[in-house]
């Protein structure tokens, strides 16, 4: 009798688990949620409020984008160097994090470009060290976010001209070093400068703007190219036509020309 009872309980449990499992599977196939990995240390593209909520241009765009195929966007916080690996480990469906479209990343994943902007060298207000070109960094202290293309660029430049390079977990950490007076310059994007200049008026300036623009892109897994990849491509095209991206750009003080 006791055995029968145990057997019955185990069976009930198994059935319950199976039901829960299939319910989960159904939810998954419906794709009600669109999860994207993001590193919220790059205002105004993505950053956090004091209560820890992730906000920014990319967050608003992701919400509008997911809505074009009837899904809800959910942000998943990931450190910048781990964004593409997290995508491949299927921890998220896409990467939206003010991340450049570059040839080596395109070998790993597919991408849809949604914004073009320029790199800048941020210096102290008044540019006391007279930094008017990348070569002007010689012998100075330069801060940067770790794992970024900015860091790659600076490492190569450092070999040529020589300066002290400090790498920080977040873009905002790097900018903070210039505000603190420890670093002489930060290499980042003009979008980041626009935000930081507003947050710290009269403290920082642009020393040099790079000529060639960089493209920010949404990365998706290559296996999803015909499904989610296509949805993202169509969605971004739609948001551009509707002027949604321009509206979001205006909200975050990003030049409208960047999201043409």
């Amino acid at each position: 009798m006791r055995y029968a009872f145990t057997l019955l309980s185990v069976l009930t449990l198994l059935v319950a688990l199976a039901a829960a499992g299939s319910a989960g599977a159904n939810r998954h196939s419906a794709k009600a949620t669109f999860t994207y990995c993001t590193d919220p240390t790059f205002p105004p593209m993505e950053y956090t409020t004091t209560s820890g909520k992730i906000i920014g241009f990319d967050v608003d765009m992701a919400a509008k984008l997911a809505a074009t195929w009837g899904a809800t966007a959910v942000a998943s916080k990931t450190a910048f160097p781990g964004l593409i690996p997290a995508l491949q480990a299927k921890r998220c469906d896409a990467v939206i994090s003010g991340i450049f479209v570059t040839p080596d990343r395109l070998k790993q994943a597919g991408a849809v470009t949604y914004m073009k902007s320029h790199r800048v060298i941020i210096v102290k207000a008044g540019n006391p060290k007279k930094i008017h070109s990348p070569n002007g960094l010689k012998g100075l202290v330069v801060a940067v976010q770790t794992g970024t293309k900015y860091e790659d660029y600076l490492k190569a430049l450092q070999k040529k001209i020589g300066f002290t390079l400090q790498s920080y977990p977040g873009d905002n950490d790097a900018v903070a070093q210039v505000l603190l007076g420890r670093a002489d310059a930060v290499l980042t994007q003009d979008t980041s400068f626009a935000f930081q200049a507003k947050a710290h008026p009269g403290k920082i300036a642009v020393g040099y703007t790079f000529g060639a623009p960089d493209s920010f892109g949404i990365y998706y897994r290559k296996a999803d190219a015909s499904t989610l990849g296509q949805q993202i491509k169509d969605g971004i095209a739609k948001l551009k036509v509707l002027g949604t991206l321009k509206t979001i750009a205006a909200k975050y003080k990003v030049p409208a020309a960047d999201v043409k």
Partner: peptide, 17 residues
């Protein structure tokens, strides 16, 4: 921003995905 052992591995992670 101290370049120690873990920094080296995170940087390689970023470069090689």
């Amino acid at each position: 921003s101290l370049h120690e052992l873990l920094t080296a591995s995170t940087q390689l992670t970023a470069a090689k995905f």
